[in-house]
Every structure is written in C-alpha cells, then in structure tokens.
C-alpha cells in the first residue's frame, strides 16, 4: 500500500493517512503536517484532528472540495520529518494507594511482580501522548513497560472515577471523567485532565510527553481539595 493515502470521511472530512502502524516517527509526520496546515491553512479548512497515524482535516464543503484540498495538502507534505521534540515532560502525580488503585493488588499477582515493583515500573519512563480521545482529554499513551502489561477486566465497571490511572494490554491511560471502563485501575491522580471552565481546559496535548510521579495518600488528599 502506498502512503500517504487520502480518504474521504463524508462531505466534510479528508483523512491523510501516513502508515498502517504506530510509531513515534509516524506521529512526527502527522504533527508536522498539522503544523504546516495550521501555519498556512488552505481555504475552507476548519479543524485538524491528529491521531496515531493520520490527520483528519475537517473542511467546509461550501468553500473547498476534496480535490482542491488534496492538491493543497500534497504541496505541504513533509519531505523530511524531524523527530518530535521531547519538550517539557508533564508531571502527573499519582497515588498508588490500594484504596484508589482498585486492581493494583490483582495486577501485581498477574504479572508476577511486587506492588512496589509495579509502581516503580509504571513511574520510571516518559510516555508519549499519541492522541487524545474517547472522552475529552483522555490520553492514548505509548511506552508502557511490557513487564506490567495486563489484559482488561472481563467485565467493564459501570463507573470509573475521574483521575483513575489504568492499564489495558500494553497501554496505560487516565480517565478524565467519571465513566464506564474496563481498564485495570492502579492509582488515581488529583489533577483534572479536563475542566471546561478554564481558558486552557485540557491538561495534555497530543505529541507531548508525560511522566507519572508517585505521591502519598495524604498528598493526594491535600491536592484534591478544591477539585
């Protein structure tokens, strides 16, 4: 299959697909095109949505067409893509206390590590935020240690509290809202990932790196005040 591919999504979306797989290099290409398009937006472009391996370009069909957009985008396609800058690593305080990390005990038994080993493994690397979605501000993170990868719960919970940090297969993520979910919950952050009342309503951004920093239950409670 030849990349990049241009795919229609209805009469308002054009998908520019860079690859069939996931890697930091592909993500860099997606973000490089996003930057080029936001610096010099072709007529009719309304919104840009970067995901793992493609950029969704939302447009006004009254002002442009897939043909015109494809031509305009082809000119902006990155020839050489610099790697994503690591930039500032966002620190996410997480309390791994068993009262908040509902599945931590079971996960540690399933992967054959002690609880402190699981916490050390989870909080010792920088994770790349590949994209945001599912619910507002939910980060799809890459970089989980395979030593603590673990399948989802057989039956999803009807309510996972906002801030819960979970593991599903080789992914880890944070629930921004109270929502149903099947990820194994190992801790909770007192930070709000989505707050519509703020001028910057989202804590994270696709393409950024983050790191989990263990905190005590006391600290979690102190930071939760005013949430």
């Amino acid at each position: 299959m030849e990349f990049p591919r241009f795919l229609l999504q209805g009469d308002t979306g054009l998908v520019v697909e860079f690859a069939a797989d996931i890697s930091p290099v592909i993500l860099a290409a997606v973000h490089s095109l996003q930057k080029a398009l936001s610096d010099q937006p072709p007529v009719g472009v309304l919104e840009l949505v970067p995901t793992y391996r493609s950029l969704l370009v939302v447009y006004d069909p009254g002002l442009t067409s897939p043909e015109l957009l494809t031509k305009a985008i082809a000119k902006l396609l990155p020839r050489q893509v610099p790697p994503l800058p690591q930039g500032e690593v966002v620190q996410i305080p997480v309390c791994y206390d068993l009262s908040l990390g509902w599945d931590l005990q079971q996960l540690s038994e399933m992967v054959g590590l002690t609880i402190p080993e699981v916490i050390a493994e989870h909080s010792s690397s920088n994770y790349l935020t590949y994209m945001l979605g599912f619910t507002p501000g939910f980060p799809y993170l890459g970089g989980l240690s395979p030593r603590i990868a673990c399948p989802r719960l057989a039956t999803p919970r009807t309510l996972v509290p906002a801030g819960s940090v979970g593991i599903a297969e080789e992914q880890t993520g944070i629930y921004p809202l109270d929502s149903p979910g099947g990820w194994r919950i190992i801790g909770r952050t007192p930070l709000k990932l989505f707050d519509p009342s703020l001028e910057q309503p989202f804590l994270l951004k696709a393409g950024n790196y983050l790191r989990f920093v263990p905190i005590s239950l006391e600290e979690y409670q102190r930071l939760s005040v005013g949430r």
Binding site: L46, V49, L56, G133, F134, P136, G137, P176, F194, K205
Partner: peptide, 10 residues
C-alpha cells in the same frame, strides 16, 4: 462546538 476534536471533545 468547533475546534476541540483534537482534544477529544465532541
């Protein structure tokens, strides 16, 4: 609401 799909907001 336009402009927030990149952040996961419908």
């Amino acid at each position: 609401r336009r402009g927030y799909r990149a952040y996961g907001l419908p």
